[in-house]
């Protein structure tokens, strides 16, 4: 066992299960809910599940690099959070424009491009 993994009493499988459960919840929200804002929230949860997996892998797998603890996974999470914030802002603006234009936020009602 690596030093970091040996000291951490929570096994890797528990973390990954948690990440998978969160991702599944987000997926359920995306597929089942019809409010566009709620779909956006579910996407945020899915992104967070992936972020948790990144940080966990960074701790459990990279941590035994010879020159100390590399932090690449945490830096990736930083970028994910930045992109997620950008995504949330743009998506909310789109939802607002949708509401002003079509008077709805139900994703099923927005089928203008469907043929």
């Amino acid at each position: 066992m690596t030093l970091a993994a040996a000291q951490n009493s929570v096994p890797l499988e528990h973390w990954l299960t948690l990440s998978g459960v969160l991702f599944t919840l987000g997926l359920c929200g995306v597929m089942m809910r019809r409010n566009v804002i709620l779909v956006l929230m579910s996407v945020e949860i899915m992104l967070n599940a992936a972020n948790v997996a990144l940080v966990v892998f960074n701790k459990y797998l990279i941590a035994n690099a010879p020159e100390g603890v590399a932090l690449d996974g945490q830096v990736f999470v930083f970028f994910t959070i930045a992109v997620a914030a950008a995504e949330a802002a743009v998506a909310l603006v789109i939802a607002m424009a949708l509401f002003r234009r079509l008077d709805t936020v139900n994703v099923d009602d927005v089928a203008n491009l469907r043929w």
């Binding site: 948690l18 459960v21 089942m32």
Partner: peptide, 8 residues
């Protein structure tokens, strides 16, 4: 997990 459940 509970937060995610209630959210969804």
């Amino acid at each position: 997990v509970i937060g995610g459940l209630v959210m969804a």
